[in-house]
Amino acid sequence: MAEIIVVTSGKGGVGKTTSSASLAVGLAQAGKKVAVIDFDVGLRNLDLIMGCERRVVYDFINVVQGEASLKQALIKDKRYDSLYVLAASQTRDKDALTQEGVEKVLDGLGTEGFEYVVCDSPAGIEKGAHLAMYFADHAVVVVNPEVSSVRDSDRILGLLASKTRRAERGEGPITQHLLLTRYNPTRVEAGEMLSVKDVEEILGIKVVGVIPESENVLAASNAGVPVILDENSFAGQAYTDVVSRLLGQERPLRFIEVQKKGFLKRVFGG
């Protein structure tokens, strides 16, 4: 069986798709066979962030409805042989996605030897978000240091603890990871933005990583190259750390302090 990871948040626009793409790439870089699925039916986006939008022939719904095989619909990544994308349907309505259909696809991926399936959840707490989390073994809850996002993520943490198959079957709780993104250490230092510690205290859970607010994220999405592949960017390096932690390695948090290096130090190192 593949390990199922849902990337979810409640609130939209917080960085779920950005994170799903980078985590999937990072797991593939670690040698794992990975599929990343776009659950946002009607608002397909993951294909663009992964840079495979022109190669989408069949989508998730086609497989669910038996109109295409899993093999036909999986898009192989150009960079990593062990990484595949399953696009969301752009034309069908949300009702085309059913619990049995999702289960069939996930089981199929397990049979195909996939080790990890990353589920990019749509926003909200409706059917699409529910289906994305239902079969998960692990959850990455993406949160921004901002009031509505923090509140929504607490709501999602509650749903993860009760409304998943693991919870219903009493199979032990799904592992919950809090991923704080779009973090701006300068604004935190000025008292304008909730800190890592604030968010951890409010939600009562430690973060699995902190992704700084970064211009490189837009550049990455412009190019269709997940930001984790931009090894010089802080955001990319922070995602690499998160992948290592998800795989059980210890990595200290980085990029959460204001960079105090002067120009000369930056040029000559230090």
């Binding site: 008292g191 909730l194 800190s195 409010i202």
Partner: peptide, 26 residues
């Protein structure tokens, strides 16, 4: 004009609303 240091206010408001919502959860 600089934005105000409002993170403390945000934290306090969240502390209260999150506790309240947890108590009626489910």
């Amino acid at each position: 004009r600089k934005p105000e240091a409002t993170a403390g206010v945000a934290k306090e408001r969240l502390r209260i609303i999150v506790a309240q919502e947890r108590s009626t959860r489910g």
